[in-house]
């Protein structure tokens, strides 16, 4: 059973939901928000957000009747993008992929796991890696397949793996 999510104190502080004009304050504010985004999405095991999803508790605190505007959400997501934790999924930057580890970190984690379990040079399916029994207990278990796929693409660019299309899924061969 999941434990109750622990919101930071800022979540009940009304100005937290208004993007602050004072630079230092704003930087601090965005930092807290970025951490909160990653923490909360990880807690829900959610990897995708829509900036217009205005009933989502992360964006909307009903208790104090404050919500983040889509513009502010975009500012926070752009910050996450700079640190490698988010990427827009469409041109209008409405849908975003968000991940608590960077793609590179995921890629390295999987690669290390493949090495340790002696699966180099064999083809693993994406499903096996993300949801298979063998990967249970690892940090990347349960991670959105689309996120992992993006992670493997970065690995592929380095020549450490090859992504192959298998019918309606993908297989990955690590070198």
């Amino acid at each position: 059973m999941m434990t109750e999510f622990e919101w930071p104190w800022e979540y009940t502080f009304p100005p937290f939901f208004t993007l602050q004009p004072h630079e230092e304050t704003r930087n601090q504010q965005i930092k807290v928000w970025s951490d909160l985004f990653l923490r909360y999405l990880k807690y829900l095991n959610k990897f995708q957000v829509n900036i217009n999803e205005n009933t989502f508790p992360l964006f909307n605190n009903d208790a104090i009747k404050r919500r983040l505007s889509p513009e502010t959400i975009t500012v926070i997501l752009e910050q996450l993008q700079r640190t490698g934790h988010a990427a827009p999924l469409d041109k209008r930057r409405i849908e975003w992929q968000v991940y608590s580890y960077t793609l590179e970190e995921y890629a390295n984690m999987v690669y290390d796991w493949i090495q340790q379990t002696g699966q180099l040079n064999t083809i693993c399916t994406l499903y096996e890696i993300a949801s298979g029994e063998n990967s249970e207990g690892t940090e990347f278990h349960g991670v959105d397949e689309a996120v992992l796929l993006n992670a493997f693409r970065t690995l592929e660019n380095k020549g450490k793996c090859e992504v192959v299309q298998l019918d309606d899924s993908f297989g990955i061969k690590f070198f």
Binding site: W9, E10, F16, T18, K65
Partner: peptide, 26 residues
């Protein structure tokens, strides 16, 4: 006061209010 980081703003449908800047100086 806001420019000096002493207070911060809360803009909502209820209007503009200013709070002590707890974000920086809790």
């Amino acid at each position: 006061a806001e420019r000096l980081g002493k207070v911060c703003r809360d803009e909502s449908i209820e209007g503009l209010r200013f709070y002590p800047n707890l974000l920086l100086h809790r």
